[in-house]
Simulated assay, not measured.
Amino acid sequence: MKKVCLLLPNGFEAVEASVFTDVIGWNKEEGDGTTELVTVGTRKELKCTWNFTVIPEMVIDDADVNDFDALALPGGFEQAGFYEDAYREDVLAFIREFEKQGKVIASICVGALPLGKSGILQGRNATTYNLNNQLRQKQLAAMGANVIPDQSIVIDNNIITSYNPSTAFDVAFTLLESLTSRENTDHVKRLMGFLV
């Protein structure tokens, strides 16, 4: 069984997290059955960007990178406190350990910024939120990433980044394909109505 850690900082966007739970969950029940997802929060109770409250299955202090095969990280809003949690040293160290072990890391939108802050995107191709004067892409570039501004999803070896919430399902399916196969992912896409 391949286990995905869905890392949830306070202030994350629920829709960006939910695509991972749905795609990995659909695969567990209706696909090849080889994946499962565990929600790991920075707090025992989290408030999403739009005030939706979530209780994760475990907190980051109790999570061991060795128990997981991949890391998934949604973005969030500064006004909701996303960066306060996403830039905490324990979060950045957690991300660094996934990279050190060569595990797949998938982020959506500004979920790439904690990756950049951790240092794992130094000299690597990546992207992040692309609108609003490309403020977030400029921030990611200042962290050492080689930002590909007009590409919706950028894959650099084991790291997947994307440029806004519209890419969420595509990132989740890309993660699933990296853990299983193209054939299995297409099967799950068909079951979910993404392929005819």
Rank of each mutant, 00 (worst) to 15 (best):
N10A: 02
A141N: 02
S166C: 00
C5T: 12
D170H: 05
R190Q: 14
C48M: 12
E45F: 04
A14R: 04
E89G: 07
Y83D: 11
D156T: 08
N27Q: 06
G116R: 02
L6Q: 06
T39K: 05
M58E: 11
A106E: 01
E78T: 13
R43T: 08
R96P: 15
A93Y: 00
E84L: 09
L176K: 04
M143I: 00
Q101L: 12
G102C: 09
M192P: 02
R190I: 07
A172P: 14
D69A: 10
V19S: 13
S118W: 10
G119F: 14
V38Y: 05
D69F: 07
F12Y: 15
K47L: 13
E30T: 01
C48P: 01
L37E: 02
C48N: 03
D32F: 01
Q139N: 03
I159G: 01
F68A: 11
M1E: 05
V91A: 02
N158H: 15
L179V: 07
I155D: 00
L135I: 15
K100N: 14
N157C: 01
L73M: 11
R124S: 00
V19A: 10
N66M: 09
L113I: 04
L46Q: 04
E13W: 06
N184H: 03
D64E: 15
N157E: 15
G119L: 04
E89F: 01
L92H: 07
D62N: 09
P165T: 05
Q101A: 15
Y129H: 14
P9A: 04
N27P: 12
D156P: 10
I153M: 05
D186I: 10
V110H: 04
P74H: 02
G33R: 06
N130D: 14
A80G: 07
D150E: 14
Q79R: 14
I159T: 14
V104Y: 02
N146L: 12
D64P: 03
S18V: 06
I153P: 05
Q101E: 13
T35I: 01
E84H: 15
D67I: 00
G75P: 08
P165D: 10
R136N: 06
K117Q: 13
L71P: 01
A168I: 03
T180M: 03
G144H: 11
S166I: 00
I148F: 04
F169M: 07
L71G: 05
